[in-house]
Amino acid sequence: MRCRLLKKAAVGVFLAVMSLSICSCGTEKEAKSPEATMEAFYQLIVYQDTGAIVKLGIDQKEAQETLDEYQSSMISAIQNQFKNAGISISKSESSDILDVITDSFQKLDYKVSLKKRDGKEASVTVSSQYIHYLDLFQQAADETINELKPKHIENLSDAKKLLIENIKTSFQNAEISKDMHSKTFDLKNKKIKSGKHSVRLFFPEDAEETGSKLMELVSDK
């Protein structure tokens, strides 16, 4: 089963919501470095950790609420992909799969480097290790098929449980790449209102594309 979990609509949720906070009012402050911005976005989108984005000046409550919405979208995306394959799974089962995938992504190493900075525009390169995401789903599907007959499993519910467990095991034992893939992101210096304060950040020009590119980077797509 080639399950495309990370759709653009899901991976862009965080950045798209953050974009709504861009404003032209508030206290003027010196912008954080573009590298710091991409570090924070990588950690939130890939690691699902709000720590770095909060350090940039984003309100903790807003960051967590947005992450919760992002995770909810991811869980729905997993359910929909199983549904498209003719299998119905619960939110709880989908959430369990997402947790294991996130744990796998958290093992990846990465680095961020400034490629170009010209006034209020900058280009930043993010390099990261990756896992063979789609291959892991296919591996789990193949293992499930091979196990069904010897175990004489004919009940659909039991077969589904076996598939879910094999997906979890595949990601838990996922081999991390020894090399890194790289992608470059364009950022612009913008003022963002978050909570009671305003911060100036280098922010991606295309929020949805940035989220998608980060996930493509770490999933070897």
Score class of each variant (00 low, 15 high):
Thr50Glu: 05
Ser90Lys: 00
Glu35Ser: 14
Glu28Asp: 13
Phe41His: 00
Asn84Trp: 07
Ile45Glu: 08
Gln60Glu: 12
Glu65Thr: 03
Ala77Tyr: 03
Ile75Val: 15
Ile75Cys: 15
Met74Lys: 02
Ser33Cys: 06
Asp49Leu: 12
Ile75Thr: 15
Gln71Cys: 00
Cys23Phe: 07
Ser92Trp: 15
Thr66Glu: 01
Thr37Phe: 08
Ser19Met: 06
Lys32Gln: 08
Asp68Tyr: 00
Tyr47Ala: 00
Ile97Gly: 09
Glu28Phe: 05
Gln43Ser: 05
Pro34Lys: 03
Gln64Val: 09
Glu65Gln: 09
Glu69Gly: 15
Gln79Phe: 10
Glu30Met: 11
Asp68Leu: 01
Ala77Asn: 05
Gly57Pro: 06
Thr66His: 04
Gln71Asp: 04
Asp68Trp: 00
Lys29Phe: 07
Leu67Lys: 05
Lys83Ala: 12
Lys55His: 03
Ser24Val: 15
Glu28Ser: 08
Met38Asp: 04
Glu65Ile: 07
Ile87Thr: 05
Ala52Ile: 02
Asp68Gln: 04
Ser92Asp: 11
Leu20Pro: 02
Ser33Thr: 15
Leu20Gly: 05
Glu69Gln: 14
Gln81Glu: 10
Leu20Phe: 04
Leu20Glu: 03
Ser19Trp: 00
Lys61Tyr: 04
Lys29Cys: 04
Ile45Val: 09
Gly51His: 10
Ser76His: 11
Gln64Leu: 11
Ser92Glu: 15
Lys91Gln: 15
Ala77Asp: 06
Lys83Met: 12
Ser94Lys: 11
Ala40Thr: 11
Ser19Ile: 03
Gln48Thr: 10
Ser94Ala: 14
Cys23Gly: 12
Gln48Ala: 01
Lys32Phe: 12
Ala52Ser: 10
Glu30Ser: 11
Glu93Trp: 05
Ala36Glu: 15
Ile22Phe: 14
Cys25Glu: 15
Cys25Asp: 03
Asp96Met: 09
Ala85Met: 11
Ala40Phe: 03
Ala63Leu: 06
Ser24Phe: 14
Val54Lys: 02
Ser76Gln: 13
Asp96Lys: 15
Asn84Pro: 13
Val54Phe: 00
Tyr42Leu: 08
Ile87Leu: 01
Gln43Val: 08
Gln81Asp: 08
Glu28Leu: 10
Asp96Pro: 03
Asp96Ile: 01
Ser73Ile: 02
Glu35Ala: 05
Asp59Val: 03
Lys29Gln: 06
Gly51Met: 09
Asp49Phe: 05
Ser72Met: 13
Thr37Trp: 02
Lys91Cys: 06
Tyr70Asn: 12
Tyr47Pro: 09
Gln81Gly: 03
Ser73Trp: 06
Thr50Trp: 00
Ile53Ala: 01
Tyr47Leu: 00
Met74Val: 11
Gln43Met: 06
Ile75His: 15
Phe82Ser: 02
Cys25Gln: 03
Ala85Leu: 12
Asn80Pro: 08
Pro34Gly: 05
Leu56His: 07
Met38His: 06
Ile87His: 04
Asp49Tyr: 08
Lys83Cys: 13
Ile87Arg: 00
Thr37Leu: 11
Gly51Pro: 07
Glu39Asp: 12
Ile53Met: 09
Tyr42Gln: 07
Lys29Pro: 09
Tyr47Ile: 02
Pro34Met: 05
Lys55Tyr: 03
Ile22Met: 14
Ser72Tyr: 10
Ile45Phe: 12
Ser33Val: 01
Gly26Ile: 12
Met74Ser: 05
Phe41Glu: 13
Thr50Ile: 05
Tyr47Gly: 04
Gln60Tyr: 13
Phe82Cys: 01
Glu30Thr: 07
Glu62Gln: 10
Ala63Ile: 10
Thr27Cys: 14
